[in-house]
Design a protein around this nucleic acid. Structure first.
Lengths: 340, 340
DNA sequence: GTGAAAGCGCTAACAC
DNA sequence: GTGTTAGCGCTTTCAC
């Protein structure tokens, strides 16, 4: 396939027109010091006249940098991609990267073929680093990236002893706080709707739920636990199942605000009054809660902060490659509304 | 920032180890013909032993191609990014690009700064072509790309005389069909919830709605029209407004399935029976309808086909640059369910 | 402060 | 079939 784009002026042509050397033009383009104001202006004018745009492949080859980072979503189920959690993170990453001058590239990896292809892309030097989100416990991609010595930062661990750098929220602590609050308000029949249990984040929250119940000397057998997948629909179904098993439920910890919204729907369908009969607390999916369920209490994850920290860790790895793995666990905050 | 990744073997080293010339290695790597099976194997072994990975910047520089295309979302409101329409299209583009060997890169452009930055990225040759979706009528990006002679394909026109290549659905026709069906089943008080009216797609659907009413000699003054923004929430609010103005509504054409789901919610809250009292038809947002509102009738847009055609048009522009703008309008299909 | 020159790692055209 | 060579357009020393 012929993809050449002819007629694009080069550094050299700019230099010729400005009557200077290529090095000087390069310095001007990159805002480097060591160029007199007058020649800088001359060069800038030549650039403008010719409509010069640097060839990034050449820059990349000479400078050994891509000025881009990839955000990879290894989510075989595209529905999750539609959840507000993703857009919240993406948004915050975009903001955080704005200063660094790096392009944020989102890529979907839904199959082994796509995994291989992306790996080639990244190892080929088209990105300086990789951000990963929504990683399931058995996903090999982080290790593949680490092996290729590509600076990588995960959003969320795959397990308790994750080695790759990551940023995570204090999921167990958040769950504990939420359930402790429900207990403190006199609830005793407290269920939980989890995320996919092959994700560490879901395991942690379940653990937090159990720990809180245990310290109140309450049993927490599996009939009080229903698995969902973070979607609203799954929350609705899970809640319906829980209600069947335990009509007396008076409190619920949900995997996400989206899940919680589904649970609320099921509760109302079942004629239960929320929050009078049942209190529901979800994990923060970002502004969705504000929009559709303003009265929902949540364990707030600092999504904006997560994006900022991910970028910070990645930049650190770029500056000082592969000396260590960096881990940051962000505190969660319980935000109470009418429903609890 | 030092982003060099040292220790990466080069083509030359592979050639040395295999005892062949660089050209031969290049041919093997690119699966080109003209290499004997035995040397091909020798080279492949050397590649494996060294863990060689082609440097894509160098390939790009020498071969004048990026082997990547960008899908740009120029949506200042990230909430829309969470709608299933996006994930449906992205999914289908990913599939369609799988054969071409090109990487799909999603990029968000939410501000002028990001617009400029992306333009630099694309003009710098990091992508071979650009796909654009969710373009508002006043978005200058398509023209900027065209001016830079970058192969570009839009999903949806910006206006009736769009010049840049595009793929679109027959929105006016789809709306007409939907309203005609409502009329045929005896409905007479038919309202519509539109998308953002600064998008041509929304204008077309509104026009289709009006045309269908007009041919039935029915008035369609503005009090029957409420503007939304494709989200469920906006659908709910718009429906509530319409019900206030016209309690007797017996049919609704909604901007999307998502919007329609919101409308249904408002209708039920208002105590209206759906579909007995009111029939609702939305535009296809892909499987969302199947999930949460299986009984919703829709004007089905062939999302998978849209992705496929977008890629086809882009490839055509790559092969044979800038000879023409290509436009494809895909037919819609009215799929009826219980609610209509 | 500025210019010249040496690569960066690859593809593609051309010899053999 | 296979090796050799000339770039692709830039950054980055190193002289001046």
């Amino acid at each position: 396939m012929g993809r050449r784009r002819p007629g694009t002026p080069t550094l050299e042509e700019v230099a010729a027109r400005a009557g200077v050397g290529r090095g000087t033009v390069s310095r001007v383009v990159n805002n480097a010091a060591g160029v007199s104001d007058s020649t800088r202006r001359t060069v800038q004018q030549a650039i403008a006249e010719l409509g010069y745009v640097p060839n990034l492949a050449a820059r990349s080859l000479a400078g050994r940098r891509a000025d881009a980072v990839a955000l990879v979503m290894t989510e075989p189920d595209w529905r999750l991609f539609a959840e507000p959690f993703f857009s919240g993170i993406v948004s915050s990453l975009g903001d955080a990267l704005a200063d660094t001058g790096m392009q944020l590239l989102l890529t979907l990896v839904r199959s082994d073929a796509e995994r291989r292809r992306f790996l080639e892309y990244a190892r080929g030097g088209r990105v300086d680093g990789v951000l990963l989100m929504s990683v399931h416990a058995d996903d090999p991609l982080p290790d593949m990236l680490a092996e290729a010595r590509l600076p990588t930062v995960l959003l969320g661990r795959r397990s308790g002893d994750e080695r790759v750098s990551y940023v995570d929220a204090d999921n167990a602590g958040g769950a504990r706080d939420a359930v402790a609050h429900l207990l403190a308000t006199g609830r005793r029949a407290i269920a939980t709707i989890t995320g996919p249990l092959d994700m560490y984040v879901a395991q942690c929250r379940l653990r937090g739920y159990r720990e809180a119940l245990a310290s109140a000397r309450l049993a927490a057998d599996d009939s009080w636990v229903a698995q969902g997948d973070f979607t609203e629909e799954s929350g609705q179904r899970a809640m319906a199942r829980l209600l069947e098993r335990h009509p007396g439920i008076d409190g619920v910890l949900a995997a996400s605000d989206t899940t919680a919204a589904g649970a609320l729907r099921a509760l109302r369908t079942a004629g239960r009054r929320v929050p009078q009969d049942v209190a529901v607390i979800g994990f923060d999916d970002f502004p969705l809660a504000e929009r559709t369920e303003p009265r929902l209490s949540t364990v707030r994850q600092p999504l904006t902060e997560i994006g900022r920290v991910m970028v910070r860790l990645l930049v650190e790895e770029l500056e000082e490659p592969a000396v260590a793995w960096r881990h940051v666990i962000l505190r969660t905050e319980l935000v109470l509304r009418d429903s609890a």
